[in-house]
Amino acid sequence: MTSDDRGSSSTSMDEEPRSSRQQPHEEDKVSSGGEDRRGRSRRKQLPLWQETVLLLGIALVLAIVIKSFFVQAFYIPSESMEPGLVLNDRILVEKPSYWGDSGPERGDVVVFKDPGGWLNPADAAGPTNPVAKAMAKIGLYPTGGHLVKRVIGVAGDTIQCCDDQGRLMVNGKPLDEKAFVKRGGASCDGPMVDQCTDDWEVGPIPEGHVFVMGDNRNRSADSSFHMCKPTVTDCVPGDEFVPVDLVVGKVFVLLWPADRFRWNTRPDAFEDVPDPS
């Protein structure tokens, strides 16, 4: 080994000595992150009033979307759904249950648009206050022109009034409705036709329609009220049925008053109803 060999470093010829390596400047080490942070800090924030307008706009769009596809608020306009729902109760109606081919089921309490002539002009008009009208359009205030009733029969069903206990029969099956129906002094659960003095039968219900009744059977101008009576000659058969296309959705919450808040479910009375033959 020569003296040159002994004095040489073990570092490879193509590797720089540690002492001669160029150290990055401090600004080089933080340049990418530092510039981003400074860039963000230099961005101009929206004034408070603009942020408020933006948030209100987003809330408005969300409210319209929710009303159109998911949930809508309504109120009870009469005593026809007592005892469960009373005048001026606030309810929520959900719509996804009836998406696609799904439709109302027996026992559902539904909100539907007036099929024509079921409401008086005042109830059909809805809110008259400009603010209330605007709120109604986005689902924050109940709209007019709607009714709330219970579905008694669906397509193909035949409904009869009544058995010897005054109970409605659907496809021959008596309904035990005493848990939610108010007869109001009548002797049967279908009194709007001749006050229970005459039996009646309707059906089969046409495809795409339902037969609805209020729970306060003596105070509800429902499907049974709109049936053609034997003594009326200018009645149009079929007016008693509600097109499924007019059904907005199913009542699932009694929202207000707060002391009566409850979830609304389908009663057991309809579980054993057989399919139409």
Rank of each mutant, 00 (worst) to 15 (best):
T2K: 05
S3H: 06
D5G: 04
R6Y: 11
S10K: 11
S12I: 03
M13G: 07
E15C: 02
Q23Y: 11
P24T: 08
K29L: 14
R38P: 03
R40M: 12
S41Y: 12
L48V: 07
E51F: 08
T52F: 10
G57K: 03
V61C: 13
L62F: 13
L62D: 06
K67N: 11
F70K: 04
S80R: 02
V86T: 15
L92P: 02
D101S: 10
D101R: 07
S102R: 14
R106E: 07
V109Y: 04
V111I: 13
V111S: 05
F112E: 05
K113I: 06
D114E: 06
A122V: 14
A122M: 11
A124Q: 04
T128P: 00
T128Y: 01
A134F: 03
A136G: 06
L140H: 02
Y141V: 01
G144M: 02
G145T: 07
G145E: 06
K149A: 01
K149D: 03
I152M: 09
V154I: 11
V154S: 03
V154M: 00
A155I: 03
T158V: 15
C162P: 10
D164Q: 08
Q165L: 09
K173I: 04
K173Q: 15
L175Q: 08
L175C: 08
D176R: 09
A186W: 07
C188L: 05
P191Q: 03
V193A: 14
Q195D: 13
Q195N: 13
T197M: 09
E201V: 15
G203Y: 11
I205V: 14
P206V: 09
E207Y: 11
F211R: 01
R219L: 07
A221V: 01
S223G: 04
M227T: 09
V232R: 06
C235N: 02
P237N: 12
D239A: 09
V247A: 07
V248L: 04
V251R: 03
V251N: 05
V251I: 13
R260D: 15
R260E: 15
F261H: 14
P267A: 00
D268F: 07
V273I: 14
D275N: 10
D275F: 04
